[in-house]
Amino acid sequence: MLKIQNLHASVEQKHILKGLNLDIKPGEVHAIMGPNGAGKSTLGYILSGREGYEVSEGSVDFQGEDLLEMEIEDRARKGLFLAFQYPVEIPGVSNMEFMKESVNAMREQRGEEPLSAAEFLKKAKEACKQVQLPLDFLKRGVNEGFSGGEKKRNELMQMILLEPTLCILDESDSGLDIDALQVVANGVNSQRDGKRSFIVITHYQRLLDYIEPDHVHILANGKVVKSGDASLAKEVEKEGYAFLGQDNAEEAGA
């Protein structure tokens, strides 16, 4: 599904990723953990194509295509979805209008007819229900005045509607209380169908209590320093990131 090889990237002349490797197969859930500043969010941005990030070395293969060559919207249409840590507010553009436009762009990609307003509304209502967002959120401006938790659920609602093949969740747990966390986790788990893959980026282990990962990678100083199964996350929970060694931890924190 996704193969990242020796990825080096920088933003504003700051070298952030320094030779990252990752191989994700269909249906797998990979958790990426690491101290602040390790480059976790950068990875999500680069994969989604955000401007301002410069890849100096390495390659990313997504379903047999060179991901780095694609436009932002083409990556999305080919099934890559990034759930943002801090989704932007867009007053004046309603959630409904936004998602309808987006869903139909995906359908067009797949050679399907656009959904009628009624069909779309039905789907959107279901998705709202699933993430426990009141229906009037569809009418409101995109993320406008939403609380932190509501924004996270809105991201999840979009994920459910767009049916991506690879979902990248960037700190989807941050700032959530335990109830909201469970809603998010249930939403994600409902989308696990053996084919869809997930990259779960998180600082803490607690989300992984609810979303069981197949693989856990520790990202520090721009590369994967340790990989393992779910037990690695528990280890980090207990020991912290101290095992990375003083040098690594400091650099990563800087």
């Binding site: 989604s48 194509g49 955000r50 401007e51 436009e71 932002i72 919207e73 990556r75 999305a76 249409r77 990034l82 943002f84 989704p87 932007v88 867009i90 007053p91 004046g92 553009v93 209008e97 936004f98 998602m99 436009e101 987006s102 762009a105 995906m106 990609q109 401006g141 995109v142 979009q158 767009l162």
Partner: peptide, 21 residues
């Protein structure tokens, strides 16, 4: 970027955002 990351083309996103304003 947000709109494009959901598969909406750049030109369509511009229209939506301009009019949203």
């Amino acid at each position: 970027y947000y709109l494009r990351s959901r598969g909406i083309s750049r030109s369509q996103a511009l229209v939506m955002l301009n009019f949203g304003f």
